[in-house]
Design a protein around this nucleic acid. Sequence first.
DNA 1: TCCTTTCTATACTGTTTCGCATATATATTA
DNA 2: TAATATATATGCGAAACAGTATAGAAAGGA
Lengths: 198, 198
Amino acid sequence: MPKRGRPIEYDPSIALERARDVFWATGFAASSLDTLSKATKMNRPSLFGAFGDKEALYIATLERYRDDSVITLKEKLSGAKPLHKELASVYAAAIDLYLASKDAARGCFLIGTAAVEAVRRPQVRHVLADSLTAFNAIIEVRMRKAVDKGELVKGTDVAAMASIASAVLHSLAVRARAGDPRNALEKLARTAVDLICS
Amino acid sequence: MPKRGRPIEYDPSIALERARDVFWATGFAASSLDTLSKATKMNRPSLFGAFGDKEALYIATLERYRDDSVITLKEKLSGAKPLHKELASVYAAAIDLYLASKDAARGCFLIGTAAVEAVRRPQVRHVLADSLTAFNAIIEVRMRKAVDKGELVKGTDVAAMASIASAVLHSLAVRARAGDPRNALEKLARTAVDLICS
DNA sequence: TCCTTTCTATACTGTTTCGCATATATATTA
DNA sequence: TAATATATATGCGAAACAGTATAGAAAGGA
């Protein structure tokens, strides 16, 4: 017996994106339910019905961002192209994402907004930790493949190399939010690719 | 004509440290003046008289943290010891600082709490950017010296190397706040030292 | 047509927030 | 001692806040 009662007027997926954008620009603590309600075009009761309280909504946006990021990261590190090209495309995509806003740069949603809440909110901390681990693992898989293919010298510590590649991603996230210009971020990315793939 | 009127009962320097600790654990937005007032043992009117409004107080704590960090960073990168030892001691000191709390790890005060406010608060963004630039510059100076001393091969791009060393510091800051255990952070630090000083 | 179910709109409640106004305490100076 | 200058203590007040209660609207089912 599907479809009883009044149908919902919002698209949960779009609403989640709008809420994410609010949190991304303002952070969790400074984002009011009023602002979120307007951005998602959902009334507060509808927000509660769909996602739960403010923290649950925030965590849903974080998980969505993590899942999207995992997908694009896997795509870009598929192994179809040489490692140095794939790694460069990962950094380029990250920089585009971090500088996408017309206002001040937003950086990475996770590192920029979840880090501050992580100390006092264990759920947020765990989503953040899971995400960083997931990203690192995808990079590590590609690095292992690179050793097999001869793109990296045999004996390379792939876990170590992956953590360095991740570190550069973290640095791009922070520096974007600090207002670093695009060319500075691109220089860091080139440096990292050269260092890792030399 | 010094010392008129009732003398202050608080130590501005200690009060600033206490306020910094509140911001460090809770972030700017979620730190109430009530909590800050209790932590500093200053009434709200005294807080305003001494530091101005909440944002001015926050910026004062950020600048203090940056200045302290610059001093210790310069000390540890004085050139008295080999580069790999000095760099390792920088990372070790950072890890100690990031994990110092008895509760959840606080990471880096700047990256953990200023990054989230940077988008909407230009003053915070500028302090953050200045700080990252200052840290990077100190590392770069040491790297240049390392080339002169023969610790790094001639022709090394010292600016690039310094930005990688900084990136690892940023990653440690984020990963500490995500709850990564000490040994994971220490492994990243060792990896970075080996990569940079090999 | 009328009932049930589900979503939406409005408005409310009690709390917390920041910044400040007023009153009081403690020092120096005349 | 009186006057002045500065700091502290208490608490006010308007606004914002999160979450909810209640009423109304829009669909399907009988």
